[in-house]
Design a protein around this nucleic acid. Structure first.
Lengths: 145, 145
DNA sequence: ACCATATAGTCAGACAGCCTGACCAAACAG
DNA sequence: CTGTTTGGTCAGGCTGTCTGACTATATGGT
């Protein structure tokens, strides 16, 4: 078997996923969010984190992360508050709007997965997810989107 | 089933693929090539194409494509020649070095696919490829890599 | 044959997202 | 209580993309 075009299929599939989620998020009323933001939101969810932790998660410098956070704060998705125990650090957390946007993204993701599941069947999708997990082991999730 | 992290797996898997190919190409002696270049090479292979055709393939403006081609020409991977029938256009083709780099990329792709096939089995990989094809139908292959 | 319009490609300028380097202030370790 | 580490900002630069304006060739209607 050749699988010469598997790289292209994988790329196209992952782009289709990203675009579907992005479109869902926009349609839900958050047109100023881009896919990279969603990746940040994952880390910001729950208890939140500091800037350096976010930068590490995103695989970027703290300077770049700082710019990103400033943007998200200006748009009303992220809040900065003093760190409870470390006077140098800032705690970053999602605002209610940020949480709502995160939920919209999850919903959009579930929707497209469900649609695909109907097309290919639950069994095949399950195999796909398992194989993807194996492949994903050696690949960082970079916010290349 | 949840599949809440399927988007991340897909992204990580596609990044793993891209990085494996990129690493293979570098190791084969083409350190000045980046994944986006490989995507251009696909269109430049064989009879070649014009700048506008390449731009369309890459999903970018002709101005950006022009910059890309200038870079590839300077590095010795692409040749410009007058178009046989259209005096306005330029024919873009791969140099022997460009063809060799393309082959190195194919080889690297096959290698990593073969490795994964050994891990998950031919059957599961086949299902993966089929499902990816379905997903890929609605996603452009953008040179986001 | 001629002119109007469409097309291939270039040049110039701007912007977004990322980087490196230098720096400040709080925390921590001896 | 002083030296080093760590969280974060500011300043400046690079790269890849974009839009807008332009030249030159091709094409089609009269």
């Amino acid at each position: 078997m050749a699988y010469d075009d598997l790289p292209f299929r994988m790329l196209a599939a992952s782009n289709a996923m990203t675009e579907a989620i992005d479109a869902g998020v926009r349609a839900a009323g958050y047109p100023d969010l881009r896919p990279a933001h969603g990746f940040a939101f994952v880390r910001l969810s729950g208890p939140g984190c500091t800037l350096v932790e976010l930068a590490d998660h995103m695989g970027m410098t703290k300077q770049s992360a700082s710019t990103l956070v400033a943007d998200l704060e200006r748009k009303g998705y992220v809040r900065r508050s003093p760190h409870p125990v470390d006077g140098r650090a800032t705690m970053l957390t999602l605002t209610p709007r940020g949480v709502a946007a995160t939920e919209a993204a999850s919903r959009a993701g579930r929707d497209v997965v469900r649609r695909w599941a109907r097309e290919v069947g639950d069994e095949r999708l399950e195999v796909f997810a398992q194989v993807a997990a194996v492949m994903a082991r050696e690949g960082r999730v970079r916010p290349t989107w």
